[in-house]
Design a protein around this nucleic acid. Structure first.
Lengths: 204, 204
DNA sequence: TGTACATCAGTGAACGCGCGTTCACTGATGTAC
DNA sequence: TGTACATCAGTGAACGCGCGTTCACTGATGTAC
């Protein structure tokens, strides 16, 4: 253990991890730089070597959250358009359910306003892009209505985002019935977006 | 002005109003009992005559928020089922856009957890009820699919809630194009929920 | 109509707390020659 | 291979702040008789 007194060596990473743990357990309001430093056995100002201020730390957490969400969405099988869209919806809601406090931080709006952290905005966009690509894909295959892409995407996003929020805030029936709820709701929107004549996927 | 030194006479109400003003301008995080008392020219402990603690005050604000939302939803014309559903969606999103910080408090989840304030939960339910009634109404008139009411309602709610959140957090295109976006999205969900054979409203 | 008294709605002072951030500093590391 | 020196990553102390809440209290109001 080359843990010399000075030069912790891994402070940036460990601070991130510890803050993430606190966030998960107690929400972003519970994250303070002083407490964090205490937990890491380090003086508070040391953290300022790695994070400009408290908000920057939170932004970093949110960024890695968006990256994780993006990975989940990318992992969805894209072969069948219909299954892909439902799969994206399920993956999205599953992420929110698994990481409620992280999700709240990412989309809270209050804590991390748009525009203040360019890398954060970018990470959010990158995750959103996967959803939009999936919709565009479905549309190109003639599977979705000819409505403007932005409209279809906004609808899909609103739906999964709203469902996520309502779920993690306990407004909807227990989490046991929630996955099929998500699937059912997504299907509901989908069937509305399907051209009547083209409700079969062209085989690859 | 019977504003005697003691006995402010209207402290409860004025505290509510002042707190609401602060909430609107700066969000719930900016509400503190001490600052509030200062603004009202009253000692801080005086507020404890009217509110058990800070959180109770926030709960009161959220309650009146739900009441206001409910009124807006009740004001929607219910004659035509399709128009009613779209109207509810528009009214809902308009409320969020007009009162972003209040809306965040009502649905933040972090600040006011479900179950802690019975009257708050009740007020939330009462607002939700209007939406559910509208959906049930549409279904009874044979206008909506025979899917479970809870599913249809959850879908509608998720959609408008998600759209509201994304809108007030600036994730969607400018607020200028937003009303037609809301209408378009709601219609998208609706057309998916419409039985193909019954897309005309029985005339009254 | 007057009065004793309970109750209500305020006050001022204080407790105890933790926070973000800055400052001048020191010890460790890496690099040029 | 050794050494001067810049740079990096920490330290401890302190500033200044505002907060929620409790305490023992006092002044005003309302009510029973």
């Amino acid at each position: 253990m080359a843990r010399t007194a000075y030069h912790h060596g891994d402070l940036s990473q460990q601070a991130h991890q510890q803050a993430l743990a606190t966030l998960r357990e107690q929400g972003d309001g519970a994250i303070s730089l002083r407490a964090l430093a205490r937990q890491l056995g380090v003086s508070a100002p040391a953290l300022y070597r790695h994070y400009a201020d408290r908000e920057s730390l939170l932004a970093e957490l949110a960024i890695s959250g968006f990256q994780a969400l993006r990975q989940r969405l990318l992992a969805v099988n894209q072969q069948d358009s219909r299954k892909a869209l439902i799969g994206i919806g399920l993956a999205y809601v599953a992420f929110a359910r698994d990481e409620p406090n992280l999700y709240r931080l990412m989309f809270g709006g209050r804590v991390l306003p748009r525009g203040a952290h360019p890398r954060l905005d970018q990470a959010g966009l990158a995750a959103f892009q996967v959803l939009e690509d999936t919709v565009a894909n479905g549309q190109q295959r003639g599977y979705l209505k000819a409505a403007p892409l932005s409209l279809l995407t906004a609808a899909a996003w609103s739906l999964v985002h709203g469902l996520s929020q309502l779920t993690i805030d306990g407004h909807l029936p227990g989490p046991d019935s929630e996955p099929q709820l998500a699937a059912g709701i997504t299907a509901l929107l989908l069937d509305g977006s399907v051209e009547r004549t083209t409700n079969k996927e062209p085989s690859p």
